[in-house]
């Protein structure tokens, strides 16, 4: 019962946050809606017993990525007036129809398909269990993604710096 209430609460906030990102005229409002969606998704991860991911969702998404977005929006002073013009109505209509169709298709597919049920391991979201899988089964991808992060940092600095 509590689980269902919490699920609907988080799900509604997450989807409303997504809607806010889509509907906001001011990029700042969009970014704040995104923040609400990120926190609601962290709650959904907690409901799925993925504690580590919930913490990382708040730390990395809300703490780092969103701050970067806000920094750029404030740095460029992108108010509603400075933000790019709204696309023509026909593009909006086509996009809305496409997105609605996509959502309907995915929902009907997921609701009609049957997946093999399984009981999650008791230590499903624990840091130790996830860490064991991460460092034993996924050692090479883990190292590779650290290289990717390094490349992304260097690339971001070089691109944003412009002429030396």
């Amino acid at each position: 019962m509590t689980e269902a209430v919490l699920f609907w609460l988080f799900a509604v906030v997450a989807v409303a946050g997504g809607l806010g990102v889509v509907l906001a005229r001011d990029p700042l409002h969009g970014a704040l809606s995104l923040l609400a969606a990120f926190f609601a998704l962290a709650g959904l991860f907690l409901l799925l017993a993925a504690q580590l991911l919930a913490v990382l969702q708040v730390l990395v998404y809300a703490g780092a990525i969103l701050v970067l977005f806000l920094l750029v929006i404030l740095l460029l002073d992108l108010g509603p007036a400075r933000a790019a013009a709204s696309p023509p109505g026909v593009v909006k209509l086509a996009g809305a129809l496409g997105a609605l169709g996509l959502a309907g298709l995915l929902c009907t597919l997921f609701l009609s398909a049957s997946f093999p049920p399984a009981v999650p391991p008791s230590d499903f979201g624990a840091v130790a269990a996830v860490g064991r899988v991460l460092f034993i089964d996924y050692t090479l991808p883990f190292e590779a993604i650290s290289l990717l992060l390094l490349a992304a940092i260097l690339g971001a600095v070089v691109v944003a710096k412009g002429k030396v």
Partner: peptide, 28 residues
């Protein structure tokens, strides 16, 4: 239920990417 939330968020994101002119909006 969770898959439906994922599908809705995906559709909203896809709408944002395809219709926005604003680069920051596309990234969101």
């Amino acid at each position: 239920h969770f898959l439906a939330v994922g599908a809705l968020l995906f559709a909203l994101g896809a709408y944002c990417v395809t219709t926005r002119k604003n680069a920051v909006g596309i990234l969101m």
